[in-house]
């Protein structure tokens, strides 16, 4: 039980940091880099909305459901990219073990 609570706590802390813009890339004017940052930023935004899809409960999950009709198209690709990034996310997630 304590374990589940711990995971939820970690998940929430992680989401809260995403929500503070913790992982946003440095602004650069090179179009190629900005494009990549934009895509990454968008992925983090989707994560904030639908972290439930990945099993991370979010305080706003009920309210973000109504965003689905406008974001569903992006979800499939997002889930694939998130699966690719799983190692990176796990690593970041692990950091939340110590705080």
């Amino acid at each position: 039980m304590a374990n589940i609570k711990d995971t939820i706590k970690k998940g929430l802390k992680f989401l809260a940091d995403v929500n503070r813009g913790f992982f946003e890339g440095a602004r650069e004017n090179s179009v190629r880099i900005v494009k990549k940052d934009a895509l990454d930023g968008n992925d983090y935004f989707i994560l904030l909305c639908f972290s439930d899809f990945l099993g991370i409960p979010s305080p706003a999950s009920y309210y973000t459901l109504e965003l689905l009709p406008y974001m569903a198209e992006e979800l499939e690709g997002w889930e694939l990219r998130m699966a690719d990034k799983k190692d990176i996310l796990d690593e970041q997630f692990e950091k939340y073990h110590f705080h």
Partner: peptide, 24 residues
């Protein structure tokens, strides 16, 4: 109180994404 703060963060994230998209 909680949701107001949470939504504010999301709005800022969305705005940043839109800004980067505009630049790109």
């Amino acid at each position: 109180e909680l949701m107001d703060r949470w939504l504010q963060g999301m709005i800022e994230r969305r705005r940043n994404v839109k800004e980067m998209m505009r630049m790109a």
